[in-house]
Simulated scan of single mutants.
Amino acid sequence: MLNNYLDISPEVRAALDAGKPVVALESTIISHGMPYPQNVETALNVEQLVRDSGAVPATIAIIKGRLKAGLTRDEIDYLGKTGHGIPKASRRDLPVLVAQGRDGACTVTTTMIIASLAGISVFATGGIGGVHRGAETTMDISADLEELAHTPVMVICAGAKSILDLGLTLEYLETHGVPVIGYGTEELPAFYTRKSGFGVDYRLDTPEELAKAFHVQQQLGLGGGMLVTNPIPEEYSMDPAVINGAITRAVEEAKQLGIHGKETTPFLLAKIKDLTGGDSLDSNIQLVYNNARLAAKTAVALCALEKG
């Protein structure tokens, strides 16, 4: 039945059949993350970095109602050119978009779902969603957190976006039994910056250690995913005072304009980009590259473990 809805590209299918490492990549960053043609250039660069690090990239999206694990260059270009004309697709959107034969840019949540359906265990992204500031009254909590609790995919990111309430995000993940791993750090990175003031559950220092922890999690039948937080490289980390000031101003403007739900994150990121003179976008791109390299190395190590 799944073949009625899921298309796995020939390159990704061949890698999976041969037991070779594959890394899932999201498509929201292409359609909603940055302007054309920079979005397409970045997506293709990320795919090449994954290949250069020994794995096969599988960019994930919904195109004409088909769940896609692995895109062609033309499909990536289509997502980039169409931009915001393609709806962001979370778990709740999947059945309607597929049933109506529509397109969808995959968030962390839907990328995890489709990756798992395709048999892909490692996923690289920029940052995850989480508990939004003021969620104690708005109940605005990203579906990414719930997906991490249920879907067996390792998500490698630069931490939760610092537009969020990081403390409540960590509490939510703890409640749902999601391990939060710091790669080479004991402190949760805050997307644009390497430090947040909040600790992670465990520090691991090599891709092999990451792979083994995830492998054991799955062998024990614990279910759910694993969150690996990989700090942005030092040379691209932003001044905390500058980025936090921009975030505070952007959050206040979003409140004044009544922006909420799935429109919140794109608005905040665009506003922060404007307030920082584009520096936040440059940092965003570099942290995605950094996560793609680590994800590929971890996928290589995981394949070696699974082969015994």
Rank of each mutant, 00 (worst) to 15 (best):
A55I: 00
L49I: 14
L67E: 00
T72Y: 09
L97V: 03
K81D: 06
L97G: 02
V96S: 11
R92S: 10
T82S: 13
Q48L: 11
E41D: 13
G70K: 02
S53H: 15
R92V: 07
D93W: 04
K64R: 15
D93M: 10
T82D: 07
G65C: 11
I62W: 03
I60A: 04
P87R: 03
P95T: 11
R66T: 10
Y78G: 06
G70Q: 04
M34W: 05
G70I: 02
T42Y: 09
Q100A: 14
E75R: 10
S90Q: 05
I63W: 04
D77T: 12
R51N: 04
I63F: 03
L94G: 04
A99W: 11
Y36I: 01
D103C: 05
Y36E: 06
V56M: 05
N39P: 03
K88I: 07
A69H: 00
I63T: 04
K88N: 06
P87D: 12
R73W: 08
G83C: 10
R92N: 08
A55V: 00
Q100D: 07
D74S: 14
Q38N: 09
K68A: 05
R73I: 12
R102S: 09
H84Y: 13
E41P: 02
L44C: 06
V40Q: 06
Q100R: 15
L97E: 02
R102P: 02
P95R: 04
G80H: 04
L79A: 04
D74R: 14
D103I: 08
I62K: 00
G65R: 04
L79P: 01
T42N: 08
Q48E: 14
P57A: 05
K81R: 15
V40E: 08
I86F: 10
L44N: 06
V40P: 00
G65K: 09
E41Q: 13
D103S: 05
A99D: 07
G85I: 13
P37I: 05
A69M: 05
Q38V: 09
I62D: 00
D77I: 11
K88L: 08
K68Y: 05
V56S: 03
V56C: 07
G65D: 10
